[in-house]
Design a protein around this nucleic acid. Structure first.
Lengths: 341, 341
DNA sequence: AAATTAACTGTCAACGTTGTCAGTATTTTT
DNA sequence: AAAAATACTGACAACGTTGACAGTTAATTT
């Protein structure tokens, strides 16, 4: 009744060969006669034999990797996961998902266990965990292969292969675009000192203003989370100012969506009365009204690249793949007004 | 240099006991003296020993499960994944993600391999795969544990434990709500005969109209995909009608968001000129303007329940957990106008 | 005091693979 | 014709763990 799963020995018995020969056929090793190969393959078919992955794993290096992320609901994560998944499938690797609360101390322990127990051979780290070089070192010390995705014009150090993305340049490009459209009172929403992407985008914003000879107005820089609700609140705060801005740079699309909502509540037309831009090019940024001008971040590609690098590292531990930088690109849509003064 | 990972035997040697005793300590088995237990535990600490999961898996049933889904970008999937993940972590199980193109014939083969190779012990199936009883039977025949999530007032058959959700009742409730608000020309956008949820919602829509004595207008029922773009297109088609509707029932929130956009393009105010409702209560449905009235679908809870059932089934194969139905609930927000005639 | 039970610990054989090494034919080279 | 290489196949030992079972004390019952 409870038909046990066929093993390599069952195949061997039926094919009248040693189980080692079956192993050779399964792994496509050289020097097996075509005749025997065909016979074994036939038995494999009829038994529907599938090599036991667990047993195989006892003799080989693990071929699973972990994706560790913080904010489980953002599109950022979803797009990354899809990118990693597609790469994993191409290479026959397995993905273990590991959402985590980066604030928690458990993370270290959990990751350590995943590595130590041979559950995964490598880890892809995203911010803010990827910025914790102490953690990276600990993982490395446990023989884990690590690839991290960080914000920056270059990798922060040489610990491990790194994917980096230049938020500062993009923040600057976006601000310069707004300046070119005639805006000079530009608000920056979503500054967070503990968030490298945010800081990078903010730096770019400052540089652009500086190059244009426009003084920074501290009251136009508002701190807050990367969420819709925070975007609403920050915008309300901004609009309560005696002299509000003509353009609003949301540090991500969710903030921008919140800004859109808050503007609407205040009966302001976007972009006529207030220009709003976001960052990230999340799917919904082209489903708002008006469609958001934003910065495209190739999350899926970045993550796929990270997976490819990690897999290469797991297969060829000798040669470290080189770091890899990604460019962000302005996506102009309908949420910015050209001011003619 | 390449410090090998410590094994149970290393611990045993250092603690001066047999490796079996270490195994007892690790697995918290009875009848180990406190003295030895403490000594072993100390060695485990200092070596940072982690039991090799792979080796353990060779002697025990697999404790990973697969989540198989079709549309990798919808919130539906993400919420489910989070629900499953939280349940898995509570129980110490592992999740293997398996996105798939349900149209492809590969699915059968891939799932079969996952089961056959002992990679996972069970599978959570979502529509449309979960509605394919042939596939379910094939998996069952391979000793897989299966739990499926389907649309319907009750499970379609007794093949396996099933989570079901009554789209028809919710579709009816939503339509009745619109009727109660004074609408009688109500359009239904996103009908798809091959999509059980869609059909269920449509049936509820028909029933409500029928009970209210309102004849069904075929030109108000528009077929299309569950996407924003499709929502835009269907709404344009609807608004081109000589006598359009006063209310629009989008089969999911994305369609409704598309409708919002299309209405806006046609200078129609929502809800003043056109009421729009969605289905699913996806995160963005409360970030649109106006906020969408919709139906809440507890995806995370459903998925967590599915995971709990599957894990129970894997641990106690004897007793099948009972099926479980979930209710959908109307979420009234700001996108419906009350008509006074 | 002997017999039974409880409390503990160890030995050894699995689990299903792959790697190492030793064979045996067959072909090619000397 | 002998030697060497090539093409193939199989025995056996790992891999690190858990389960079955046996052994050894110490405590309890008869």
């Amino acid at each position: 009744m409870t038909a046990k799963k066929p093993t390599i020995k069952d195949v061997a018995r039926l094919a009248g060969v040693s189980f080692k020969t079956v192993s050779r056929v399964v792994n496509n090793e050289a020097w097996v006669s075509d005749e025997i190969k065909a016979k074994v393959q036939a038995v494999i078919e009829t038994l529907n034999y599938q090599p036991n992955r667990t047993a195989r794993l006892m003799r080989t290096a693990p071929f699973s990797l972990a994706f560790v992320y913080d904010n489980p609901n953002s599109h950022y994560v979803i797009e990354m996961q899809n990118g990693i998944l597609s790469e994993c499938r191409r290479k026959g690797f397995e993905l273990v998902i590991h959402p985590t609360d980066s604030g928690s101390d458990l993370v270290r322990q959990e990751l350590s266990t995943m590595i130590g127990s041979n559950q995964v051979g490598g880890v892809i780290l995203t911010p803010p965990l990827s910025e914790n070089s102490e953690l990276v070192q600990q993982l490395l010390a446990q023989q884990a292969k690590v690839v991290r995705i960080v914000s920056g014009a270059a990798p922060p150090d040489e610990l491990c292969p790194t994917i980096y993305v230049d938020d500062e340049a993009a923040g600057r490009a976006m601000t310069e675009y707004l300046l070119a459209q005639g805006h000079s009172r530009i608000a920056f929403l979503g500054y967070r000192a503990d968030h490298r992407s945010s800081v990078g985008r903010y730096r770019g914003y400052c540089t652009a203003l500086d190059k244009a000879g426009i003084p920074l107005c501290p009251e136009l820089v508002i701190s807050g989370d990367f969420t819709f609700d925070s975007g609403v609140a920050m915008t309300e705060q901004l609009l309560a100012l005696p002299e509000p801005a003509t353009a609003l740079f949301g540090c991500n699309d969710e903030i921008a969506a919140g800004a859109l909502f808050a503007a609407r509540m205040k009966q302001l037309a976007v972009p006529a009365d207030l220009s709003i831009v976001g960052f990230e090019n999340s799917p919904f940024s082209r489903q708002t009204w008006p469609k958001l001008t934003t910065v495209h971040q190739p999350n899926a590609d970045m993550a796929a690249k990270a997976a490819a690098m990690l897999i290469a590292l797991m297969l060829e531990p000798e040669e470290q793949p080189p770091h890899c930088g990604f460019h962000l690109q302005l996506v102009v849509r309908d949420s910015v007004e050209k001011l003619t003064k």
